[in-house]
Simulated scan of single mutants.
Amino acid sequence: MAQATLILTMPEQLWIQQLSTAHPETTFRVQAAVPGAETGFALVRIAGSDVTAVLEAMREHDQLTELTIAQRSEREATVHFETTAPLLLFSSQESGIPIELPIEIADGEATVEVTGSRERLAELAEQLEFFGLSYRIDSVSERLHQSQLLSERQLEIVVTAVDQGYYDTPRRCSLTDLAEHLGIAKSTCSETLHRAEEAIVKRFVEDLPGLDGAESLAEQLAAN
């Protein structure tokens, strides 16, 4: 399974792009969303200094219907609404890739995390482009369970090393102490830790952001 973090730029004709760019200090956090036949429904938490103005603009926008305020304070509101332009939901539905919630939107951009097969993610990229949603890639990586990254024995030793304070600064446990606690030879403990650390560090470096945003999601999936 591959995991990708995308930064989407909303089309100018979309209500969320218009409102979030008009109020760039306001954040829209999508807590729940579901597509309908031709519309979409969402629960969104709005936070910022212009909440009143944002709510008034939402009530007046022709792409939003059935706006209901679930919670309200001076700088925050949670609203439920129906929209006639749920392009992100339609992209997700057509590609078979669920959008992981919550989604945060600010100043016309949405940060979206998705997980699925490389084929499905490539289909999502095509659907985003079809609906006019441009994007740049923050990261793409394989989503591995810890048991796939480390062997059972490596995991046991690393967890014990953390518990015993081997990785504390200053250390509360020496390599000799750790080996004695585990009941293994010092050389075996050292080699097993080194192999586990190698796997962890390499995975960490591979997951660092810095991918070329000019490449499409499909191209980066193929490259990996």
Rank of each mutant, 00 (worst) to 15 (best):
R120L: 14
A106D: 00
A70R: 13
R59Y: 06
L67H: 04
P86E: 07
L101K: 13
L121S: 09
E82M: 13
L101S: 04
E113F: 11
A106L: 05
E82Q: 15
A53T: 07
Q127D: 09
A70L: 14
R118M: 12
S95Q: 05
E100H: 11
A47E: 15
G96F: 06
A70E: 14
Q93P: 02
G48N: 08
R75W: 01
A125V: 02
E66N: 13
P102I: 02
I105R: 01
E76R: 13
A70Y: 02
R75N: 12
A122F: 01
T115C: 12
A85I: 09
E82G: 09
S73N: 03
D62K: 09
G48C: 08
E113W: 12
E82F: 02
A57H: 12
G48L: 09
P102F: 03
P98Y: 11
Q63A: 12
E113G: 00
E126R: 15
E60L: 10
I105F: 04
H80A: 14
M58L: 15
V112N: 01
T68G: 02
D50K: 08
L64N: 04
E76I: 04
T78S: 10
E109D: 04
E60K: 11
H61F: 00
R72E: 03
A57K: 10
L124Q: 05
R72Q: 06
F90S: 06
E94P: 01
R72T: 00
R118W: 10
L124C: 08
I103Y: 00
A122Y: 01
M58H: 01
E104F: 01
P86T: 03
E104C: 10
T68R: 14
A57V: 03
